[in-house]
């Protein structure tokens, strides 16, 4: 019985995958409608998954508060903020000025502050780097960082001297040759992996939905 159900699930997954895939090759009205319907289902499921994620987050932090674990006051703040935001959104609507104010005056400054702290932490790490570790890779990293910063910073770019040309070309060579080459390798790997995974699911070799 279980094997029969597994075959059914595999057949459904393969069929839906082929329906979505054929949209790139065949332009038929019927197939287009079916593909759109399947994608709508996927979007609804993804939205439901988001709700499930929020529920799971709430449950985890409620359990931490109940057990008085370490850092439970932060969990209490999180749960309180979530409940308040949810209630405000439900009562006043998602487009109300109050909800937009919460986003503009609370969420955005907090996230920007975190980004600023990240900049300070990275700078501190670079300053301490040679005090903690001195090897060839560290020296190469520091020299690269210094060249890119010199090529990016306005105090050198604004000049018309030879140093500007040199640093600008060095920065472009590092970012568009070395970094872009590495990025191309990463993208090729991701594409090959996605292709292999999709083919295995379409062929029924992988069944992440269960047996």
């Amino acid at each position: 019985m279980r094997g029969g159900l597994g075959l059914v699930w595999a057949a459904i997954a393969i069929a839906f995958g082929l329906i979505v895939l054929q949209g790139y090759f065949i332009d038929l009205e019927v197939l287009r409608g079916v593909r759109t319907m399947v994608l709508q289902w996927a979007v609804v499921l993804a939205a439901a998954a988001l709700l499930l994620g929020v529920a799971n987050l709430l449950a985890v932090h409620l359990s931490k508060i109940g057990a008085q674990e370490k850092g439970w006051p932060y969990s209490a703040v999180l749960v309180g903020a979530l409940v308040v935001t949810l209630l405000v959104g439900l009562f006043f609507g998602e487009e109300s000025p109050l909800v937009l104010s919460v986003f503009q005056y609370i969420q955005q400054p907090v996230e920007s502050t975190l980004a600023g702290l990240l900049a300070i932490s990275l700078t501190l790490g670079i300053v301490r780097l040679l005090s903690r570790r001195r090897d060839m890779r560290t020296y190469i990293f520091l020299i690269t960082v210094f060249i890119v910063l010199l090529g990016t910073g306005p105090w050198l770019i604004a000049s018309n001297g030879g140093l500007h040309q040199l640093m600008g070309e060095a920065r472009a060579w590092l970012s568009q040759v070395w970094a872009a080459g590495a990025a191309r390798g990463l993208l090729l790997g991701v594409a090959l992996g996605a292709t292999a995974t999709g083919l295995r699911i379409l062929l029924g070799a992988d069944r992440p939905y269960g047996d």
Partner: peptide, 16 residues
């Protein structure tokens, strides 16, 4: 960026 560059240089000199 200029301050960061100066800090990087100072940190490198101090580390060495």
């Amino acid at each position: 960026l200029l301050v960061v560059e100066v800090l990087v240089v100072l940190g490198a000199v101090g580390g060495v």
